[in-house]
């Protein structure tokens, strides 16, 4: 690992250690926060008791569904919008301010329409994720080198061939950013919906534990979400860095 990596690791471990010391020594009261080591122990116990698996599968399943829908629809919508420049110019200010609108306020409306199932939660996750994918697809398509498109025209490639052989590979880094954001936003949408109004899932369990002053379960679940999301993101980040390095080497 590089020097930067070691410093980073030291900072992360140092902050966790500091938190541990502050909690153990009572500077942070146990009612506010339990020590990180206790969170891990509680999480382990929760996992061993079998109470962790059902909400986790439920939440992760919903996130996965929302994520896949966001990426597929976002990419297709991005391609279509990019092909219609006039429509796109009109749409731009709306896309740019999309994330300021708290979409989960429509969640109760969706429940009335679709019933109290997983579907409204998946739709909210999708609504959160899809626009990040659209914006990044547009960004990527903007940066496809014109010369490559000309080469495509000279070779008389069909629209589909151009999309698959030229646009997709050259927009790939931006699409990857979109995918990363879609993961993050799907998580946010799904968990926020579970917090607000739902009967199961990790978000619901955290809210339930909070309302019952059950700090141990609450922090164990919080630790689980934070570590899962971070691990997932780090994996994507490392993969992205590798991809970028390979690209630069290939040139």
């Amino acid at each position: 690992m590089s020097k930067v990596g070691w410093i980073r690791l030291a900072i992360v471990l140092g902050s966790v250690g500091l938190l541990e010391i502050l909690c153990q020594s009572g500077v942070i009261r146990p009612l506010t926060m339990i020590p990180p080591s206790r969170m891990a122990v509680e999480l382990w116990k929760l996992g061993a008791s079998g109470k962790l698996a059902p909400p986790v599968t439920k939440t992760l399943g919903n996130v996965a569904a929302a994520f896949i829908l966001s990426v597929v629809f976002g990419f297709i919508a991005g391609l279509l919008i990019h092909a219609l420049p006039r429509f796109r110019r009109a749409l731009d200010p709306l896309l740019a301010s999309y994330y300021a609108v708290p979409f989960f306020v429509f969640y109760p409306v969706l429940i009335v329409i679709f019933g109290m199932s997983d579907l409204p939660i998946i739709i909210i996750g999708f609504l959160f994720g899809v626009v990040a994918m659209i914006i990044n697809t547009l960004n990527g398509l903007d940066r496809v080198p014109t010369v490559l498109l000309k080469v495509g025209r000279m070779n008389r490639m069909s629209a589909l061939q151009t999309a698959a052989l030229i646009k997709l590979p050259s927009a790939a880094p931006y699409l990857f950013t979109g995918v990363k954001l879609a993961v993050a936003y799907s998580f946010i949408g799904v968990i926020a919906s579970e917090f607000i109004l739902s009967g199961s899932g990790i978000g619901y369990d955290i809210a339930y534990a909070y309302n019952n002053f059950d700090n141990r379960t609450m922090y164990a679940l919080m630790l689980f979400i934070l570590t899962t999301v971070t691990a997932l993101n780090m994996a994507l980040y490392i993969w992205e860095q590798r991809m970028l390095k390979r690209r630069q080497g290939g040139r």
Partner: peptide, 22 residues
């Protein structure tokens, strides 16, 4: 900056609503 950037990106992606009880 090099040390902090990945940490910030990781924090950015967290569903911060999870932290509301805290």
């Amino acid at each position: 900056g090099q040390v902090a950037e990945p940490i910030l990106v990781a924090l950015y992606a967290l569903p911060k609503i999870t932290l509301y009880p805290l």
